[in-house]
């Protein structure tokens, strides 16, 4: 029961963060929202009994992808016109 509620919360946060990632005009905020998507996915993968994939998503999706996006934004423009 508690796990079901937790699953629903996780999926709702996942969808909300994805919507925010598309909605924000500030690209840095959008990238942080998409890293929240990756973090939620990592927890969901753990609940779905895929620890290998959860570890990969945590290391690559949350860490490296966010930083690569940040460097790209630093080199270009921060705000979407």
């Amino acid at each position: 029961m508690i796990l079901t509620i937790l699953e629903i919360i996780l999926v709702v946060v996942l969808i909300g963060a994805a919507l925010l990632a598309v909605w924000y005009r500030d690209l840095v905020a959008a990238v942080i929202a998409s890293s929240v998507v990756s973090l939620m996915l990592s927890i969901i993968f753990y609940i779905l009994q895929a620890p290998d994939v959860a570890l990969t998503e945590a290391a690559i999706g949350v860490g490296l992808t966010t930083i690569i996006f940040m460097i790209a934004i630093r080199k270009t423009k921060r705000f979407e016109e």
């Binding site: 290998d52 570890l55 990969t56 290391a59 690559i60 860490g63 490296l64």
Partner: peptide, 8 residues
């Protein structure tokens, strides 16, 4: 875990 995770 494994090579890809450890490398990351």
């Amino acid at each position: 875990g494994g090579g890809f995770q450890g490398g990351a």
